[in-house]
Write a protein that binds this DNA or RNA. Structure first.
Lengths: 229, 229
DNA sequence: TTTGCTACTGTACGGTTGATCAATTACGCT
DNA sequence: AGCGTAATTGATCAACCGTACAGTAGCAAA
């Protein structure tokens, strides 16, 4: 005769713990189903809780997504930054490490890209998502500015304007990441890393005069006019 | 006494005309509502036709979206390309024109970006959308390769590998476009154009040795080792 | 004027969605 | 052991989704 012991239908936890679990489930759903994954039913099922619990812990669905966005963005940033400073010493090598980490398989995961697309597509209509985007993207650029700044301090590069340099580099990184995520067969992560390294090498060798100038250089292109015919 | 004349409830047209009207309506819905705009109800309402007509002219909703993607992509490409060759003569100036056209207000329209996000997010799950993406993106890169190729032929730049150069440049363009679309306040289209011009200037001045080499350069970074201390 | 083709309509169907809220119940505390 | 709190449940709601299809009607040809 087995001893009868009441087995509870569910378990209570701290709101904080539950919130984290829901954020985790949201991330898993977004990865697997993309846009279709942003559904209270799917998310609650993935978290193993009932439908109503989401609106008990979060103001709305988009509130949950916003928190998930911020969590994931900061987590990835920290991961890449840490990876970059792992075994590197000189600022130049730190940047290379940053590039390598940016195109590591875990970051290039097409599923992760689809998650990002969901976030981006909500920026236009949800103020809270927009706030998260602005915040995290600002921090991302400031990380790049910091790494680039060390480059100038160490003398590996001439002095240059940090802000536009960081903008260009982050754009290059993002553009390569987008294209690699959309069609991985077009080129290889190695090439993406090389192209980023090339850009920094150019910066170090003073190939971008407009980034060096104290004030804006007079007019547009061709700093070395090749009079030809 | 007014003359009674039967006013038809609807008008027939050629399938081709109707298809174009539906594509146009789809584009308008995607611009206005983003993901929520991909709906047979919204699209048919915008086109002023009944719900059923979409499935009469198109195999499915995603079929309609795929055609819309291809139409819009080719249209924008042609627009930018034409704008670039407008008043330009030298290959270098043609590229600058291309950049200016790429960051013109009509292209930077945040609504247009949201349309693109819808397309991108369907790449992962719809083979037909993926096919359109690969086709149009390939053409985009080949346009860039062509412009860059003329640069080398005219002697404005040393000989370099077209493919990776086009990949880097398109990534830079896309990355800048994405960030400008997401938060237009961060920097100005002028700056984006300048950064693209800078990259091409660097290419012209041989700042990217790996793009010049016949075969891959030995190892990773720093082509001009600055022994400092 | 009538016929015939087919572009077109609109309902119906089975499914989804996010949010609500009264009822339930786990579990710390007395 | 039993009370109180609040975390959790799950049915319910109106609104929306894409597709199918039987029926309507525009319009050119005869």
């Amino acid at each position: 005769m087995a001893i009868k012991r009441r087995v509870p239908k569910f378990r209570r936890t701290t709101p904080q713990v539950r919130r984290e679990a829901l954020i985790d489930a949201t991330l898993r759903c977004l990865k697997r189903y993309g846009h279709e994954g942003v559904s209270v039913r799917r998310i609650s099922a993935a978290a193993g809780v009932s439908i109503g619990l989401i609106n008990h812990h979060f103001p709305s669905k988009s509130g949950l997504v916003a928190v998930t966005y911020e969590t994931l963005a900061l987590s990835l940033q920290e991961s890449i930054r840490a990876q970059a400073e792992n075994r590197a010493v000189s600022p130049r090598d730190r940047l290379s490490g940053f590039f390598r980490a940016s195109f590591a398989p875990e970051i290039l995961d097409p599923q992760l890209f689809n998650v990002w697309l969901v976030f981006w597509s909500m920026v236009a209509h949800s103020p809270e998502i927009r706030a998260v985007h602005d915040r995290t993207y600002g921090k991302y650029r400031s990380i790049l500015e910091s790494l680039l700044g060390q480059l100038a301090v160490s003398g590996e590069a001439p002095k240059f304007k940090l802000r536009p340099a960081a903008i260009a580099l982050s754009a290059l990184l993002d553009g390569l990441w987008v294209e690699l995520s959309l069609s991985p067969a077009t080129f290889k992560p190695r090439e993406a890393i090389a192209l980023c390294d090339d850009w920094v090498n150019g910066l170090c060798n003073g190939a971008f005069p407009r980034l060096l100038a104290r004030r804006t250089v007079k007019s547009r292109p061709s700093p070395r006019p090749r009079t030809h015919h």
